[in-house]
């Protein structure tokens, strides 16, 4: 039995009257790709922000790599890519990567190796010295992903990593996530694309701040008698309403 790298207990986040995340219980084992799926406003991003210490939970708790959130000791082993671009558009691709590598105190040689690999994965090796402001939306998104991965984290949170990425490159991303998994790393991501969520090992379906179903994509589709994850989600949402 592998250890759980993400554990939340009744994690709740309220904004005034609005319950953005309600009593979320998660146990994500090491070495999986875990997908949080759900429509806008379902609480996916809020849950990830609370886990990354950007928002304080209203109640409940969360542990990452065995340490209570907000983490300090294990922070350098975690990567985070927010939904918004959140990279420096007035710096070059290389300078952004170097900045985030600097935040993790990476050695120059380790950074140079990581940068070379990541630029190939995000297909921006030729734009290494371009200002991010001059890149297309999809390219910026890829730079943002690379910034989250530059320090080779063992647990990485990716909020909508494939938005604005063309299908061919999206496939490349998923192959890369599979590679991370094989290397024993854990990827927690959110996505709108139900078709790509089937590539996750475990999927958590969120709706109105609550987890309405969780399991492998096959088990979720089977339980709902559906042929697609989208249909499975709709069936679970209907059941939750009833």
């Amino acid at each position: 039995m592998s250890e759980d790298v993400v554990v939340t207990n009744a994690l709740t986040k309220r904004f005034g009257e609005l319950v953005a995340v309600s009593s979320l219980d998660l146990k994500i084992p090491r070495g999986v790709v875990y997908g949080l799926i759900g429509p806008n406003g379902s609480g996916k991003t809020t849950a990830i922000k609370v886990m990354n210490g950007l928002l304080r939970s209203t109640s409940g708790s969360a542990r990452l790599l065995g340490e209570e959130v907000p983490v300090k000791e294990v922070i350098h082993r975690i990567g985070y890519m927010p939904q918004e671009m959140a990279i420096y558009t007035d710096l070059t691709v290389h300078e952004n990567l170097e900045l985030f590598a600097g935040m993790y105190s990476m050695s120059r040689s380790a950074f140079e190796g990581a940068e070379k690999d990541l630029l190939e994965i995000i297909d921006l090796a030729e734009r290494r010295d371009s200002l991010v402001a001059t890149l297309s939306g999809g390219m910026k998104h890829r730079v943002s992903l690379a910034c989250a991965l530059v320090h080779d984290p063992e647990l990485v949170f990716l909020d909508e990593p494939t938005v604005g990425v063309d299908p061919e490159l999206r496939k490349g991303f998923w192959d890369y996530f599979a590679g991370l998994k094989r290397a024993g790393k854990t990827v927690v991501l959110t996505t709108h694309y139900m078709d790509e969520a089937v590539r996750c090992d475990i999927v958590g379906m969120m709706r109105l701040g609550e987890m309405i179903a969780e399991g492998t994509p096959d088990s979720l589709m089977k339980a709902a008698g559906a042929t697609t994850l989208e249909d499975a989600f709709l069936a679970n949402a209907k059941e939750a309403d009833e």
Partner: peptide, 11 residues
């Protein structure tokens, strides 16, 4: 731009 929040998730 959200860069401050992002920096604060690093060490």
């Amino acid at each position: 731009n959200g860069t401050l929040d992002r920096l604060l998730t690093t060490p």
